[in-house]
Structures are given as C-alpha cells and as structure tokens.
Write a protein that binds this DNA or RNA. Structure first.
Lengths: 396, 396
DNA sequence: AGTCTTTGTCCTGAGACAGGAGAAAGTCCA
DNA sequence: TGGACTTTCTCCTGTCTCAGGACAAAGACT
C-alpha cells in the first residue's frame, strides 16, 4: 500500500492537520472558527489538503439547525508506529492519525545488548502488529530511548545505561529499515508528550513529568513544547545529589537520587531487607523468584509489609526533596509522576507531596497539582506517535 | 515634547524596530538581507515606519563599491526609563532607543518603606535625570522589583522581602505618574535580559543568570525568552534547601540557601566572625563602621583575610551545590553570576565552578561556561529598558 | 571614459485574505 | 404543509502582501 508522502504546504495546513488530529472529525465552519480564518480562505486550504489525500470528507454530520456539514477528517489509513525502548523492556504500538492506539505489544528486553539486537526485536514486533491487520504500513515512527539524544540528528549521546548506543544513528538506520520518516527522543520527553496528548496534562502549558523507572528522569514542558536543553540532557535528574557524601553511585559521584530510588535501587534495597530478615513478606518473594523487582515491593506494601512501606516512603521522600527544589526553580503548573514504579501508587505520591508542599515556596505550590500519570505504559508510545505526527504535520 | 504614540502595525515592522535597536543604523539593503524579505516589500514597511516617525533616514553611509546607502535608524529622540528597585538601593537610568545608557543615578533606599515612598523617590530621580538634559520625556519605562510579579498585570505577588507591596498596582500607578507605558518584572529577570542585551549572554539562547544580592534569585531564559513560570515565581532559588535540618530561615523553613549566603547572611556571618575573634581584619572594619556588609568581606578577602575567604568559599560552595542540581535539570548553555556580591569576584566564581563541574552530569557541564556578569549595576536598568522596548516594539 | 558594483525605486503578476451574496439543505413553528 | 429562520458551503470581488525583474542613481575601479 502506498504510504503518506504529502506534507502540509504551509502553516495553515499544518495547523489544520493538528486540529483534526486533536479534535477529531470537524466541519469546515468549525475549523474556520478555531483557526480565526475566513471561510473562503479556509475552504481553499481544506480543498488542497483533500487533493493531497491527507484528509478526506466523508458523510454528513447531524444538522445543528441548518444545512448539514461535511465531516472533514484525517485519512483513516494513516498509521504511526510508536516505540518506547526502556532499560529492561520495549513497547511497540500502532496508532491512527488521531493517535489512538490500535495495537500494542510489550516484550522484555535488555538495552545493553546494543542497538542492532534491539532493533531486530523492534522490527519483529512491528511486523507482528502489521500482520495482525491494524496496519498495512507505517507513515512515520517515533522512537524513545532511555538516555540523552541529540535531537535534530536523532542520535543518542553518552547514554549512561546503554553504552553501546553512543553515536548510533538511530533515526537514519530505522528510517531505512521502516521506509518512513523517523524521529528520536528521550523516553521521558515522550512520556510527557503522551500525557499532554491524551493524559492528565491535556490542558497544561508548563509542567514537569517525572518518570521513575529503572532510572529517574524528568520531562520539561515549557509553553506546550518539550524543552531539551543545550545538549539534549535537560531533565536528567537521576544524578542530582540527594545526600551529601551519600551512597556511591554508578555514575562515579556520591549520593545521587538514583542511588536511593528508582527500580534498580529499590530492588536492591528490597533484597537487602529480605536477606537481613527485616521483612518476611519480601523474604518469601525472594525465595520464590530468586530476585526482587519494584512490583514485589508494591505487592508487599499493599499487603501491609512495614519494610516495603518504609522503602517506598523513603524513596518518595528523597524524590520529593529533589522535586521541591525543581518546583521552586521552575514553578510548574502541574507535576505528573509516572513510570514503572507508579504501581507503588498513593503511598509514593503521598510521600512526594508531603515533601514538596513542605519545602517549596508557597507561591509555587499554592495551586500545584501533583498527580499520577493516567496512561501507564502507553504514555511513551502515544508520545512517540505524537512526536512523529508533530514532525509530519509541520510545513515541509 | 511629544512622545512616541505610534506602534508597529505588523510583525515586519516590529522586527525592523528590534533589528535597528540591536544592530544600530542600517541600510535598507542590509535590513532586507537580515529579514529575508524582498527589497520591494521591505521598502514599503520602512516607508510606513518613516511616516510614523519611529525611524528616520539621515545621512548617507560610505560607499561599499556602489551607490551610497541611506542610514535608517530609530528616532534619536526616543527615551526609555529603566528602574531597578533592589532591597536596599534603587537604580534609575535613561536610555536611547538603542538601549544605550545616557544617564544613571543610584541611591540607597529601603523597599520596606512601601511602594508610595519608594516611587516618590524614583520619580524624583527620574525628574533629576530629565533635568540634566538627557531626556525631555519618556516613551516607556521598565521597572524591576525584588520579588515575584504577576507579569501580565504588572503587580507584585506575595513578595517575602517587601510585604507592603503585595498586590500594589505598580504598572498602573507608574503609568499614570509617568504618562507612558510601563512594564514590571522581577529584578532577576531584568538582569538576565540586560546581560542578554548588552552583556556576556549576547549569543545565548538557553541560559541561567544567578543574582546574588541581598537575596538569591535566578533568571531563566528559554529560547531567548525569559521564562516566568505559572505564577511568576520561577527562578526563586533562594529558598531551595541547601542543608537538611540546617539553619532556620526567615521563610519558616530550615537550611535554605539564603540562610547561608547572599548579602544578608554574609554580613551576619562576617559580624559573627569579627566578634568571635576569628578575623582581625573584619573586627577592625566592624569597629570602624558599626556594621559589616558584603563589600567588607570582599575587601578583607582581597587583603588576604582567611576568615573572609572561608566565608566566600563556603557560600560559593553551597551556591554551587544548588546550581549543580539546576544545571543537571536545565542543561543551560551558559551560567552568568551577577548581583551585588560579584565584588567577591573570582574566589566566589572558583568555588561555584568547582562544585558544579564536580556534581553535574558531564554531558551538561562539558561545554558550559560559568562566568561573571559584565554589566554590574547597569544590567538591571538595561534589562528594564529592554523589557519596555520589547513591549513597544511588538505589533499593536 | 568605460565597466562594474551596490543601492534604491517602480512595476507587474501571483497568491493571500476578508467579507458579502447567494445557493443548498436542513429545523421549527403555526 | 408551508413559510420563516439557521447553518453550511461556494463563489466573487476588491484589497493587501510579496517576489523578482527592469532600471535609474551614484559611486568604485581600471
């Protein structure tokens, strides 16, 4: 099947495509109101988009007291691929042009196996989704990787947890393989975009999105746009010092937040608690599985295990301390907590909130919601689809 | 004398005005190149600006191998007033349209006397400048206040060090008094704008500007624009926790950065060192003056006093610790250190640099200059003039 | 003196754009 | 059932915006 080749020819067309993406099928009149453009001018641009095939006019909407309107909508055959590469697993999903998830698969994986092995797996997963009938091909793909990215080129730079990826031309390689445009970004930024597109951050302009997975990162959104920093490492808060002369961290420093919290540290601490006899619940789970993960701590905590609860509270408190500084500095309108350990749920959230509300300036916390992300594992893939659609729905 | 009433009618004209402001007198041909606009289209907009009187064409430039060009420049009679209200002093300056300082006065003052008393003084200073012949009137004024501001309305909100100012309609009141448009912002943001306009940050897009005066604040510039946060308190880093369960702070919390450093804390610590006999140099100065200020510490340090050097190093280290977190988070392309205590100079800078380069991520610090501001006291007033000129040089 | 370069002006044709007239296709009420 | 009213969409017209080319002005260079 032929895939999307056309691109919007001007800013009006780009804006139309995004409005249709986020607002669904819409009449010409409605679009004119939204864009603050005369109906005559708008009609021209819509007609041009119809010519390109990027949008179609199908069916008539119900009358609202007058002539029935034509539904203008994005081409129903458009398909985006969203890929979220984590430290220990990978998510691949297919969306339509409205960024609704049509198919989604998750598999365990180890990033340290390097880009070649990982992308082989990703391509197999994409092929599987295509085989299941939700897509005949892809018009674009967004890729999230767990480390800093030189965004314009789509190349990871100096990623601590994925050494083999440094400088690998992810964007170019995948674009070749998939035969469609590809954009690459940090997984945390994609989570923020996902929650902004379809989650709790829909109406937020300036917000932070803290992802607590194997590591800890923070997506920064300024004026509705992801802020990536000068070298693409903005939001890398895992190695902010949480304790002076504290625990040694893999990065070479001491007392980093990630040395105390995040999936890896949490599992380590839980195993220690089990071995030292501080928790029968955790010890039993360690006995059964041979090792522990963040989910075990969550399960133990909801079973009332005191040691597990302590671990969560302590991690939340440390995260909250760091976050309190960032809230004072950045004065966001919303803070979203997400990532693998959100299974820890409200115990974690309560600890974070307590710390932030206590330590940050009243003016900054006065009306500051701190909430859990509502999309879970699909936040990343929706963000990835949004990334590539933002790219494709911008003037050529 | 009649003052500026015209405003640019469209984005082209606004851009032209800013180019002329930042680039000085320029030929039509040069402007066309800068704006990426055809000479014919540009000529139309320039002619319209000439009609409004906002710009003039005077004299001919030297030939560059062909016909000599006309110099297009901003109206030489335009005058902006820049006001920088600090905790203990106030700066007032007059600039021309190119934001060059034509006259500048500084006076001691106490913000706690409240807005009415302070503005009486400010208006007297402005009148004095006008009397000296550098201006016959003002086309606009920018005001910096030492606390958070609700920017669109130009009203201070919940300012900790200037309680009487909460909710006072600074913008409206001064606009009445001066008879010209007024914009109000946090003094730290104005310092950042000043260094961006005419100082070390001229080419920086994303940078931080740390102002260490009586208190400590941080201007945040994203993509060339000041970021103010959701409630206008972004950059308020003085009350970030520098030490767990540390010194009590005036804000009610413990261990805030401002409890350890900044002009107030530094003076307090210096007086303590003098009284406890840890520094003969500082004791002598205390004896002579009855109290100590940051400048005394600077003088003592440059005279080789060990206790003074310790104070500076300790303050720099703590500031550096906080800044290290913010650098990891924000990944700026430049960090500027300015404010009253920059007299502490390179001892302070060295301590800050050491800490940031040690604690932040290598990717974020790899090519990160940390430098002193180069404008000193005029940074704020130039920033204030820039603020109002940005406002006036934008489409009506 | 002749050629080249640069600047600035003028003109033309393509496209952007708003607003109005009016046709199409419905609702609503008597 | 028919007339009045609404809403949507198309078409037309006049005004701007804009690029690019032709050309004149004014000087540099040889």
């Amino acid at each position: 099947m032929r895939r999307m080749t056309a691109r919007p020819a001007n800013a009006h067309q780009a804006r139309l495509l995004r409005l249709l993406r986020d607002g669904g099928p819409t009449s010409r009149a409605q679009l004119g109101d939204w864009m603050d453009l005369s109906r005559s001018r708008l009609a021209v641009e819509v007609d041009r988009l119809l010519d390109t095939g990027l949008v179609i006019a199908d069916g008539l909407a119900a009358s609202r007291g007058g002539r029935r309107s034509h539904n203008i909508r994005l081409a129903p055959t458009l398909r985006f691929l969203g890929v979220d590469i984590g430290a220990t697993s990978v998510d691949v999903a297919v969306t339509n042009a409205e960024l609704e998830v049509l198919g989604h698969v998750t598999q365990p994986m180890d990033v340290r196996e390097g880009p070649v092995a990982v992308f082989e797996q990703v391509l197999a997963m994409a092929a599987k989704l295509r085989g299941s009938g939700v897509a005949e091909g892809f018009d674009g793909a967004g890729i999230g990787v767990p480390g800093p990215v030189r965004f314009p080129e789509g190349v990871p730079v100096a990623p601590p947890i994925m050494p083999g990826w440094d400088g690998f031309p992810v964007r170019e390689a995948l674009s070749q393989e998939l035969g469609c445009p590809v954009m690459v970004d940090n997984d945390v930024n994609l989570m923020a975009m996902g929650e902004q597109q379809a989650g709790v951050a829909r109406s937020a302009k300036d917000f932070l999105c803290v992802k607590i997975g194997t590591g800890i990162g923070c997506g920064i959104v300024v004026g509705g746009e992801v802020y990536r920093g000068t070298t693409g490492s903005a939001g890398d808060i895992g190695h902010i010092q949480a304790e002076r002369d504290g625990r040694p961290c893999a990065c070479g420093n001491r007392g980093c937040l990630e040395a105390y919290f995040g999936g890896a540290a949490l599992a380590r601490d839980a195993e220690a608690a089990a071995r030292e006899g501080r928790s029968a619940e955790l010890a039993a789970r360690l006995e059964a599985a041979g090792s522990l993960a963040a989910t075990d701590v969550a399960a133990a905590a909801s079973a009332g295990d005191a040691a597990a609860l302590d671990l969560i509270r302590d991690g939340g408190t440390r995260t909250g301390q760091v976050l309190a500084s960032l809230v004072s500095f950045f004065n966001p309108g919303l803070v979203v907590i997400g990532g693998g350990v959100t299974g820890l749920g409200h115990n974690l959230l309560a600890a974070i909130r307590t710390q932030v509300y206590r330590q940050s300036l009243p003016l900054a916390t006065g009306n500051l919601p701190i909430v859990l992300g509502e999309l879970g594992a699909v936040a990343g893939v929706i963000g990835a689809a949004r990334l590539i659609s933002d790219h494709l729905f911008s003037p050529a």
